[in-house]
Structures are given as C-alpha cells and as structure tokens.
C-alpha cells in the first residue's frame, strides 16, 4: 500500500514554489556575490551617478549600497538585496523628481544672480537718498536759529 503523503506534499510544494517566486527570495537564492552582477545594483549606481552629477545629495542611498556590499562580502545576500531594493526605490523616486528639482534650482539661482546684478544700480540710485533721509532723521530735533553774528 502506498503512503498517503502525496496529497499533503502538494500544498507544501505549492507553497515552496510560491516563496521561490517572490522576487526578493529568488534574488537571495541566486545570490551573485559580486554586487555588479545584479542589474538592480547597476541601475542604482547609474542613478546615483546621474543624480550626484546634478548636485542631488545621495548620501543615504550610497550608504545603503555600501552596507549591501559589506553584506555580500560576508556572504549574506539575504541581508544585502533588500538594501539594494530600498536604495533603488529611493533613487528612482529622486530621479523622477529631478526635472522639477532642477527647474526650481535654476530659477532660484537665476533670481539670486539677477538680484546681485541689480545691486550696484540700486545702490547707486537709492543709497544717497537713504543716506540723506537718515541724516535728516537724526537731526529732526535740530532748531535753526539766526546767528547773532552778522554776515560780512
């Protein structure tokens, strides 16, 4: 008589296959020990290069990637790949916001440059008037009297 294990095994097998199908788990099983063999990692580096060349601060994401590299060196891919995924999610979001961030930065810089360029003209026009106003304001309590000495 055959053992009746096959009906109970099939749900377990199904569960195992489902777990295998999870992207993080399958990535961990594949466990490429060199980080650059992961497409996600390479994408992270590419995004970090682009973002940092545009002046975006990617310190946190670089820290995540370096921690992932350390875990891979310790042969702990199950710890490394979630960090890479997290860095990728953050970098992708930052890359999506890059055009609007760049536009705002350029506008801000343009406004500051215009203000600085206008400063000498404004200074030349307003400073004598402001100085005269302050000069008069400080002497507002002065009383003008006729001098006893007569003009020659």
């Amino acid at each position: 008589m055959m053992p009746s294990s096959s009906p109970t095994l099939s749900p377990l097998l199904l569960l195992f296959l489902l777990v295998l199908a999870l992207p993080g788990f399958s990535a961990a099983l594949a466990s490429p020990q060199s980080p650059e063999s992961s497409q996600t990692f390479v994408q992270c580096i590419r995004l970090a290069e682009v973002l940092s060349s545009e002046g975006v601060n990617v310190s946190q994401q670089v820290e995540l990637l370096n921690r992932a590299i350390r875990y891979l060196e310790l042969n702990q891919p199950e710890e490394a790949w979630p960090l890479v995924e997290e860095a990728y999610a953050q970098l992708s979001e930052m890359y999506g916001r890059l055009p609007s961030v760049k536009l705002r930065e350029n506008l801000e810089r343009g406004v500051v440059i215009l203000a600085l360029a206008a400063a000498p003209v404004l200074f030349y026009y307003f400073f004598p008037r402001l100085y005269a106003f302050v000069w008069l304001y400080n002497r507002r309590s002065y009383v003008v009297r006729q001098s006893r000495r007569e003009r020659k």
């Binding site: 600085l116 360029a117 400063a119 000498p120 200074f123 030349y124 400073f127 004598p128 100085y131 005269a132 000069w135």
Partner: peptide, 19 residues
C-alpha cells in the same frame, strides 16, 4: 548732495566688485 560724488563712486565700485 550730502555724500560726495567721489565717495559714492568708490562705494558703488566696491558693490560692483562684490556683486
């Protein structure tokens, strides 16, 4: 004018350089 023309010119030149 309260400020001398030459003084204003020097001050404006300093602002131009700083700017």
């Amino acid at each position: 004018m309260i400020i001398d023309e030459e003084v204003l010119a020097v001050l404006t030149a300093l602002v131009v350089v700083g700017s």
